[in-house]
Design a protein around this nucleic acid. Structure first.
Lengths: 223, 223
DNA sequence: TAATTTTTGACACAATAATGACATATAACC
DNA sequence: GGTTATATGTCATTATTGTGTCAAAAATTA
């Protein structure tokens, strides 16, 4: 998994640094470019495995850079767009971006997208297992073991747990969970979330305590 | 937490009103000041989350105002400069402006800058961490650690603490705190503030002393 | 010391979450 | 297809926790 190189082209210094910091924490090797031309240079020099490309940049915008790159390289590209630039999304896809992320985004979300894209592109070895605080998750086989005991989760329980693990330490509101697992168009009572978590906790025994309630806000997964 | 408050100090009435209108449309709470002195008064009274400061104003110019503010407040500031005033830009940065926008500008551009700055400053955030005197605050995870010990705060306690930290070294009156956290329309007893601070101090152990009482005026957060 | 202001603890009640019991939907099996 | 088992959703009840009020005690100031 090591040695994966990712180029981050984003003119806003603070944001670029945050992303690079997160990449570092995830074990990637990150390079930063503050404008389109620098991005092209770095791309030529480093031949990264993945590129994060802001749409609005000085000197050359994201699309121009992407077009240039695509003439010779199929490297996976994620475009960063401001919300207002909705139309750009489509344009970005046409030009050949592989994914897009709308600002503002959480660094964590971007990391998830990167991982997914790398996997899709066959860059990363499929690492579909996850261990968090004694909980072993094998998404492929859809199996959860806690302290070597396999536990049986229903579909909803499983999805909620994965969502929690993928966003551990973050406070997730009932709305977020509902939107994500049940879908935006879900019409029922939001308290399904409570009930599902109740069942999850019970099946997880002691580890149920990892799902903490944050009064007034939602839940948080944490050791 | 109630709305984000933005102070607009600009002597040209028309421009000021336009900016305020846009702010309103974006959901911010805007205050207008027509000269430097009025700006300082409003700043002291409202403790805004962000300030838009025109360089050329009657009574006190933008730099004087900024210098005054910076003695006690780290609030993010955007300076408005005329094209001719290029040099001022640098001066503005030295004095401690966080960004500048050159006139003429489109209101939309200003909004984008404001948003970006608020995000950078941790007011409305992507990456949201803060360290002050051994207190580590992570708003995204909604977690406070003091000397690596996690402490559990309720909603009100948490909001009050954030308000203090974001305005550290400043004396905050009970009214200000009440207005900000409980909202202007709060009808109850102002002494809730005392009680909430009592609880905060207790949970913070030694660090509780960071919240100092300023007799007759209010409270102040300081090491 | 008296007057003023703040701190504190006790209490009430409001807000929120957990739970159990039941109803309905879905899948699995014979 | 009918029967059973399992999963999922609803809801009312109970339990828990947060918040606000108040008055007495403590601290500060004049």
């Amino acid at each position: 998994m090591k040695g994966i190189r990712i180029l981050v082209a984003e003119d806003e210094d603070k944001l670029r640094e945050i992303v690079l910091k997160y990449l570092y924490k995830e074990g990637y090797q990150g390079f930063g470019a503050a404008d389109g031309e620098a991005a092209l240079d770095l791309w030529a020099e480093k031949k990264p495995d993945c590129i994060i490309l802001d749409v609005t940049m000085p000197k050359m915008d994201g699309f121009e850079v992407l077009a240039e790159i695509r003439q010779t390289d199929n490297v996976p590209v994620i475009m960063l767009t401001a919300r207002r630039e909705e139309d750009d999304k489509i344009q970005g896809f046409e030009v050949g971006a592989d994914d897009y992320v709308t600002k503002p985004f959480s660094p964590r979300e971007l990391m998830v997208r990167i991982k997914a894209l790398l996997k899709r592109s066959g860059v990363a070895t499929t690492d579909n297992q996850l261990d968090v605080c004694g909980i072993h998750l094998n998404a492929e086989e859809r199996e959860i073991t806690i302290d070597d005991e396999t536990i049986n989760l229903t579909q909803k329980e499983f999805e909620v747990l994965i969502y929690f693990i993928n966003h551990h330490k973050l406070v997730l509101s009932r709305e977020q969970i509902l939107d994500r697992i049940w879908g935006y168009d879900y019409e029922g009572d939001i308290r399904v979330v409570d009930t599902t978590i109740k069942r999850l906790r019970k099946k997880m025994n002691d580890k149920g305590e990892c799902i903490q309630t944050v009064r007034g806000l939602g839940y948080k997964f944490k050791e």
